[in-house]
Nucleic acid binder design. Structure first.
Lengths: 216, 216, 216, 216
DNA sequence: TATGAATGAGCATTCATTCAT
DNA sequence: AATGAATGAATGCTCATTCAT
C-alpha cells in the first residue's frame, strides 16, 4: 500500500501525479486511456483514483484546466514584465498553447465532454474558474495591450482561441495528411498549421483591434 | 421486405433516406444514435444499412459531406449571380453553415472521427472531394471577391471556417450556459455566438485581405 | 455461429436450452451464476442470451415460472383423473414442489427479485400468468376437493404454499445444520423438514377446510 | 474523534446506536445500505463499525436477532401474566412480528444470509441463541397453552413462524401490488396479508393442537 | 438485395474491508 | 479505540458488425 496522504499537500501531490500519469497515457493513445493503467502508472490502486477524481472524464478536464492555468500564468507573467504586443502574445500562444503537445487535442475533446460526459456541476465549476482567469486577463490586456476595455481584452482572447482551436482541427499534422501526399486535390488544401495560424491570428487581431496596438 | 433497389437512382434515394433518418436521430440525441434505430426510421432492416455504409461513423461523415456540399453549392450559385463581397459571404456562411442546426456540432465531431474512427481510405476520400470543391471555390473567390490568387481564396475559406468552428465550440448555446446564468465569473465570458462570430469573422477577413475587397 | 433460430419453435427451444443451462449452473452454485457461463453451457455467445432474456434476474424468474407451471399442470392432470383429496394434494406438493431440487430455494429468491431486481412490468407479467393459473386451479379444487367456492380453492393453495415456503426457509437441509450436530440448543429446534411440513400442512388444511374434505 | 467507549456499557450503547442507524437506513432502502452511511448516521468513522461488527451481513443478522429477542421477551412476559390462548398468541404475533415494520422483510433476508453471506460460526452462534430461547418458549407454551410436551410448544412456534414468513413473502403489501390494481388475473390472487394470515394461522394451530387449547 | 439472428469486444465504477497512523 | 486513506475484487450489458438464409 502506498504511503497514505494525510496532509492536504500530500493529497495535492498525489492528484498531480495522477494527472501526470493520465496525460502521458492519453498522449500515447487517446482512445486507449484506461483508469487501471493510470492507477498503475501513478503507483496506486484503481480505487484510489476515484478518491481524487469522480470519473475518467473529470481527469481529462483537470488536465485541460492545468494547461489553461499555465497559459494564463504565463500571460500574467508577461504582463508583469511590461507592455504586451501582438508579437509577444503570439509568442505566448505558441509557447504555451500551440506547442504544448496535448493542449489543443485535449481542448478539442474537453469542449465536447463538458456538454455531455461529466456532471453539469463539474463542467460549471471548470467554466467558473476559467471565467475568473479570463476576466482578469481581460483587464490585463486592456492595460498592457492598450485595448479600450476589459471586454475587448476578453474578446481578444476568445476570438483568438476560437481561431486557434478551429484551425488546429482542420490543419493539425496527422498521419492522414502524410498519406495524402500524392493527392493533388488534397495538397490543394493542405497547409502548414503553424504558418496559417500565425498569419490568420495576426490578421484577426489587426482587423479587430487595429494595427497600431501591436507595434507601439 | 422492402422493395429492392435495383436502379442506381433507387439506391441513391435509399442512401439519402438513411442519411435523413440518421440526421434526425443524431440531432435528437447525439449520444443515442443507434444503427438499429436508423434502419427502423428508414424502413429497412439493420443489415441493409451496411449495404450502403460501412460503419456508423461513415454515416456521420456522409451527412457532414452533404452539409459541406450544400454550402459549396450555395457559394457557387452566389458566384454565378455576380460579385461576392464580405457581406454576401457572411450571409452565405450564416445561412448555410451557422444556422443549419447540425452543421457545426457534426463538423466538430467529424474532424475527430477522421483521425480515428473510420478507415483512412474513407477519410481520405472525403478529404479529396472536399479538397476539389475547395479548390474550385478558391478560384471562384479570386475572381468574384477580387483576391490576388486562388490560394488566397482557399485561405479565405479555411481561416474563416477555422474561426467559425472554434468559436462555435466555445460559445454555442447549450443547457450548460443556461445553468450558469447566476454565475458572474461565467457571465463575464458568456457572449452571444452569432454576434461574436460576425464581428470576429469580419475582422479576420478585413485584417487578412483588406477592407476594400468587401466593398467594391 | 450456432444454427440460427428463425422459426418460432426454434426460438422457443433455444429459450428452453438457456433455461436448462442456467438452472444447472444456479443449482451448482447460486452465487456464482454468470451469464457468460450460461451462454457457453447453452452453446451460444453472451450477447445471444440477451436476445432471449433482458437480464440475469429475468432468467431466474423464467425458471421459477417453469417450475410453477409444471406444478399447475400436474394439478390439472390430477383433477382430470377424478377426485382430489388432501392426500393426493400432499403427494402432488411433494412430487412437484418439495422434491424438485431447485423449486423452493429459487422461489425464495424470486419473491425478493420481483420487488427489486427486475422491471416492474416483468414482475407483473409473471404475477399475471401465475394469477391466471391460480384462478383456474381454484375452480378445479372447488369441484374436485369439494370446497365451498373457487376463492377457497385459491386460499387452500396460497396458504399451503406460504407454509411450504416459510417452513423450507427455516428447516431446509443445509451444511450449516450438519455443523450443528453437537449443539443441544440447536438440536432442540432442528427438525426434519419433510416430516414437519407434512404434519403442519395437513393440520393447516384440516383446520381450515375440515377433516371430511380429505377423506370422501 | 468520538469519545472512546472504554466501559462495556458504553460499548454496548455504541453497538445499539449502530444497529439503530443501520435499521433506519435499511428500511429506507434495503438495497442502498452502505457501511459508510451507517457510520455517519451513528456519528463514527467507517473503520469503527468494524470494531463492533465483522461484516455488513453481521449487522443485519444482529438487527434480526434483536427483533427475535423482543418477540421472545414479549412471549415470556405474556406467560408471566397467566394462561396463554391462541388469541393471545395471535395478538403477540401481530404486535411483535407482523407489525414491526422491518421484522419480516429482514427475516426473509437473514434466512438466506445464514446459508451464505456470513461465516458459519456467526450463523451458528445466532442459531444457538435462538435455539435456547425457542427451547424455553416450548416449555412455556406447554404449561401456559396446555400442550402435551415442550416439543409441541416448539412445533407450535416453528410451524406458525413458517406460515407467517412464507405468507408474508407472497402477500405483503408492495408497490407492485398497487400497480396491479387493474389486472383481474392478479386481483384474483391479491388478498390482504393480515386477514389471510390470521385465518390461516388460526387454522394451522387448531388443526394441529385442537380447538380446545385456544379457548379454555 | 434484404433480412435479422448471432456475435463478442470492451471496461468504468462501487464499496466492503483493511490497516497505518 | 478511532480514524479514514487505500485497496481491488467483481461483471453485466450494449450495440456495432457480420453473415447464413
Amino acid at each position: 500500500m502506498k504511503q497514505r496522504a494525510i496532509q492536504q499537500s500530500d493529497k495535492d501531490q498525489r492528484r498531480q501525479d495522477l494527472l501526470d500519469a493520465a496525460l502521458a497515457l492519453w498522449q500515447a493513445d487517446p482512445n486507449r486511456l484506461r483508469i487501471e493503467a493510470v492507477a498503475k502508472a501513478a503507483g496506486v490502486a484503481k480505487g484510489t483514483v476515484y478518491l481524487y477524481f469522480r470519473s475518467k472524464e473529470e481527469i481529462l478536464l483537470a488536465i485541460h484546466e492545468r494547461h489553461v492555468a499555465a497559459f494564463f500564468a504565463a500571460l500574467r507573467a508577461g504582463g508583469e514584465q511590461g507592455t504586451i504586443t501582438f508579437e509577444t502574445m503570439m509568442d505566448l500562444v505558441f509557447a504555451h498553447m500551440v506547442r504544448v503537445p496535448a493542449f489543443l487535442p485535449l481542448a478539442s475533446l474537453c469542449h465536447g465532454l463538458m456538454e455531455s460526459g461529466v456532471e453539469p456541476e463539474i463542467a460549471l465549476g471548470l467554466k467558473h474558474r476559467i471565467g475568473e482567469r479570463l476576466g482578469e486577463a481581460g483587464h490585463l490586456l486592456q492595460s498592457r495591450l492598450g485595448l479600450d476595455s476589459p471586454e475587448n481584452g476578453v474578446a481578444f482572447l476568445m476570438h483568438g482561441y476560437g481561431l486557434i482551436l478551429g484551425l488546429w482541427q482542420i490543419l493539425h499534422p496527422s498521419p492522414l495528411r502524410d498519406m495524402a501526399k500524392n493527392d493533388p486535390a488534397i495538397q490543394n488544401i493542405d497547409r502548414d498549421f503553424e504558418t496559417e495560424l500565425r498569419q490568420a491570428l495576426r490578421a484577426l487581431w489587426v482587423g479587430e483591434f487595429g494595427p497600431t496596438k501591436g507595434a507601439p
